[in-house]
Design a binder for these strands. Structure first.
Lengths: 115, 115
DNA sequence: TGGTATAGTATACAAAAGGATACTATTGGA
DNA sequence: TCCAATAGTATCCTTTTGTATACTATACCA
C-alpha cells in the first residue's frame, strides 16, 4: 500500500506526538490511568514544570488527554488519556518496537566498528 | 500491552522520522523506488537544496536509504530505500491513517464552533 | 564563448523548542 | 508565626531547526 506523498498526513500525527517529553507522558498515563500533576512530575524527574505544563496543555487541546481540576487548596489536578487518545497507543507501540530494534542495530554497529 | 515508560524507545524511532521534510522524502522513495536528487527536488518544490541534502544524509547515516554516486558530469546521484528502511513503512502508514482521521476531526470541530 | 544542467557547499539569519530560575496563591499543621 | 504542599506563571537565556541566498566544478551544446 502506497501513500500519495502529496496527500501525506503523517505530519498531522507527528505534530501531536513530537515534543521532547510527550511520548513518555503518554506512556505514563496509558500505564497508570489517572495521574496528578505532581505524580507525573515525580515520574519524570528531569522535566521542568514549564515543559510538563506546556505539553499537557497541548495534548489536552488536541483531545488526547483529559484535565480535571478539583477546586481545593492545595490544588489537585488529574490527567488521563481520552478514549480518542487511546487510538494513539498502537502507533506508540510500533514505534517503540521499531526503536528497540534500531537501538540494538546501532549498538551492534558500534561494536563491530571498534573491534 | 503496556510499555514501561522508563524503557521507552519511541524517541529512537522519532529521531529518524522527525524533520520537516523527512516523511515526504520517505514516501516519495517508497512510491517511486529509485530517485535522483533532482527528481526529489522537483517532487518537493518548496524544499531548499540544503534541507534536502541534510535530510538525505541523515537518513543515509541511519541505513534508511541508499546513496549511489555515478562518477560523471554533470553529477548523478540516486537514492532509494534500504530493505531495513522499508520496515518503517507500516509505521508511516498508521501515522498517515491516524493523521487523516485527526485532520477530519479538527475540521469538524472548527465547523461546529463557527456555526 | 557563453549558457545549461547536476549535486551539492558556505554563510548568515530567523524562528521554534527547550531549560533555568524565581515567583505566585492558599490552607493546614507544627 | 512560619513552613510545606500543589499547580502552576513569568522572564530570560541557549540550543536546535529551518530558511534565504550566493557560490562551486565540470562537461556538453549552440
Amino acid at each position: 500500500m502506497n501513500i500519495d506523498p502529496d496527500l501525506c498526513r503523517v505530519d498531522d500525527a507527528l505534530d501531536i506526538i513530537v515534543g521532547k517529553w510527550k511520548p513518555v507522558i503518554l506512556l505514563h498515563l496509558l500505564k497508570n490511568g489517572t495521574m496528578r500533576f505532581s505524580e507525573l512530575k515525580r515520574s519524570i524527574p528531569e522535566i521542568t514544570q514549564k515543559m510538563l505544563t506546556k505539553h499537557l496543555r497541548e495534548l489536552e487541546e488536541e483531545d488526547i488527554i483529559n484535565r480535571v481540576v478539583y477546586p481545593q487548596v492545595p490544588p489537585k489536578v488529574e490527567y488521563s488519556i481520552t478514549e480518542y487518545g487511546k487510538e494513539l497507543e498502537p502507533i506508540l507501540v510500533s514505534m517503540h518496537e521499531w526503536g528497540t530494534r534500531h537501538a540494538l542495530r546501532k549498538q551492534r554497529k558500534q561494536i563491530t566498528k571498534s573491534s
